[in-house]
Amino acid sequence: MSTIGKNLNEVLMDTTMVILFAPDGPDRDKLVEEHANLSEKMQDLIDKSIMEGTVEYDAAIAALEEASEMLDVAKADVNKIVGVIEKIAKAAKVVGELVSTLA
């Protein structure tokens, strides 16, 4: 079963690896920005209790799974990071919505 913790850890680690191998340029810079956004959201989740099965939780899982698929493509070819940028941005937004329900 997917859990947000496992997915978020993996997506953040995979995004890090893609950034390390990506060529210099605006795409890499943009991905670095989105990586920072996502890691901030992850920081906000530390030591919080997250209720599974809510709309926000399921949306976060779905967004992270989509990001994970694009990351697999980029890991095979680091020039294909444009699709990853969009998915990580979406994941950061949706995880942010989940964070806001915990406050």
Partner: peptide
Amino acid sequence: SGVGGYTSQLVTTAS
């Protein structure tokens, strides 16, 4: 293993 867990801080910081 979980988000919000202790090791999440290491993953976030290391990344």
